[in-house]
Amino acid sequence: MKIRFGRSTFVIVICIVLGILLALQMKGLNRKSVTRDSLQELQNSVIEYQKKNQDLDRRNNQLHDYIRTLENELSGSETGALAKIIEEKEQYAIFAGLRKVENDGVIISLTSNAPARMRDSVLRQFVNELASLGAQAVSINGERKVATTEIRANDDQIIINGVRFDRNDTFEIRAIVNPDSIDEYIIPYLENVREVILKELEGENWTITIKHEKKLVIPALREDRIAYQNDLLVPVE
């Protein structure tokens, strides 16, 4: 009985010692797995969250002010709510692409000469590049790009927002971007994109021009377009 108790105690002690050694080993491994790169990555996350929190804080303060105006309107002590609601609605509509907008931007004209035809992938590539360059509004042949816009080829046509365009026509992409970086950065970048695309299309006869346009106007999404529909969406309270 005594021997069995002694053995059990011995096994328990060994297990504890092994556990401690394992924990120390793991700690050592954790330390060794930290590199300058992972430290930099962590610092980047800190900067990202700092910015996010600042933005959220600003937005919450704006909401506080807005709510105060609505409350004052409700209590009858102020009548500014209507103007605030209209202003808010307009900001949403601009962001959604429901308003015609204007500012400096770029126009990309694309012509594919027969037998070549316009490719949806080329249009999408330019639109994606413009988005990554921080474009705030984009249209293709007068069709405003919104969250649910499709750009796809179907036989002899390119369909954008449900509207059909002949693939032999010239296509025009318009984008409003940061006016301060158009000449120095955006146009040279797009010219590089053009060179890459033309190289891929070698053997086909394409003309792609890119220009800086002052007071460029981009139309609103038309109300009869499919992208205007929100019938399948239920707001979550």
């Binding site: 949403y92 509509a93 692409g97 969406l233 239920v234 707001p235 979550v236």
Partner: peptide
């Protein structure tokens, strides 16, 4: 109509959490 427009603009702008199939 103003409140309706406001809600519609929020939905289309993607500024409303939404659910659906």
């Amino acid at each position: 109509e103003l409140i309706q427009e406001l809600r519609s603009a929020r939905l289309l702008a993607g500024l409303e959490t939404v659910t659906g199939i």
